[in-house]
Design a protein around this nucleic acid. Structure first.
Lengths: 221, 221
DNA sequence: CTGACATTAGTTGTATGCAAAAACGAGTGT
DNA sequence: ACACTCGTTTTTGCATACAACTAATGTCAG
């Protein structure tokens, strides 16, 4: 089997629409595409070296996931929320994350613990290096590991979806290297409470983590 | 103005893709398209009198919402869940609904109370008449009223989304008139606890209601 | 100078055509 | 008789072309 040396991540010739969708999602949750910014189909098509058809497909799916909003015949925009809406979204996310933490603490197994700790190690590594982009990815991986630890892919999916929607707003609070280090430290406390295998403690710890995170995000928006 | 007689429901010339998407969603949650059934793009195009392009767009969006699943190059299928997956979906729904009940009980205002009571009255009416289809609609309206009572449209949206995904599986447990009456009675107890404005009581009551509902659904699938 | 209106450029929504991949089936060899 | 291979057919994925609508710009009347 003369397979090329991809390290575990098999990608069986990703379709163009998928590729564009993931690329846009990455840029949006990293905050590189500002909320309210317009996405022109033709420009995206030329930029990704494809035609408008797969671009439209990607935009459609991102809209269905709530990352974009599409007017009647007015094009697609990165979803922009005012403070009231942001607060509501964060409240919903708060609930989901707390539920995930509670379930995860009840079902934690060795593999899940290992994945969470690995992700956290990557967070520390990126934070100490001051690599903002790497930290954002590691941070997402950390929370994704907690979601997976619930053993419930559907819970994990909604949690991840909210995380993507709020990405641009959360990303703005990670400006300096100290912000990254503070976040990593907050993770350490959270991990301890989740690993305590007491679901109430885990849930409360996650609520605290989220509340802190949201307060910062609301200040920055 | 030679407009056709639309009764209040303004529809500013719905785009073909939207029209197809909504029609398919309707048919799927009503169970007319069985889980696992394949959706052929060309057939749908001819059926809706459109080309494949808007059909593809609709399928894409339904896939993003989890109503369909799309293989690599194998077309779109109505999402089918085995008992394990069903149990996980129900668990997630369980959490969301409990959170909704808790928040709703904290923010309940007179309008929301009125809407919940009206929906419940419709449930009783349909149950006593043994009208299964009307009861299903009223049941959805009842839960939707609770979602709206949270004052958080994002929580409401995920809750509704799960309800649509599980629709075909929950519907099967409402076979006889007695099933409808039992469900309506269960609602009465639930309402009392939500109106108590004690969030813990409300949350527990919703959990009980959902657990009961899920047990029945799992038996029927 | 301001407001309304027509025109025009630009963008979105839809249709059609084409190429590639997968399902299907026939035929052949063991 | 069974399995495997090769060719056909169906269907998806993408590109391009065109139509419909929006928004902006410029013009003209008040």
């Amino acid at each position: 089997m003369p397979d090329d040396g991809d390290t575990g991540a098999e990608r069986p010739r990703l379709s163009a629409a998928m590729r564009i969708e993931q690329a846009l999602m990455e840029e949006i949750s990293a905050g590189e595409l500002a909320p309210g910014e317009r996405l022109d189909e033709a420009r995206l098509a030329t930029r990704f070296g494809a035609s408008r058809t797969p671009v439209r497909e990607a935009l459609s799916r991102l809209t269905a996931q709530g990352v974009l909003v599409q007017g009647e015949r007015r094009g697609a925009f990165v979803a922009a929320y005012n403070r009231e809406e942001l607060s509501q979204i964060f409240e919903a996310m708060h609930e989901i994350e707390a539920a995930c933490a509670r379930i995860a603490s009840q079902r934690l197994n060795l593999l899940a613990r290992s994945e969470i700790e690995n992700a956290q190690a990557a967070c520390w590594h990126a934070a100490e290096a001051g690599d903002r982009r790497a930290f954002l990815r590691a941070n997402e991986a950390f929370h994704a590991a907690i979601y997976r630890a619930t053993g419930n892919p559907y819970m994990a999916e909604i949690a991840a979806e909210f995380r993507r929607r709020t990405g641009p707003f959360r990303a703005r609070k990670f400006a300096t290297r100290d912000d990254l280090l503070a976040s990593a430290q907050s993770h350490d406390a959270l991990i301890a409470d989740i690993f305590s295998e007491d679901s109430t403690t885990a849930s409360k710890a996650m609520r605290a983590h989220m509340t802190e995170s949201f307060m910062q995000a609301l200040r920055a928006n």
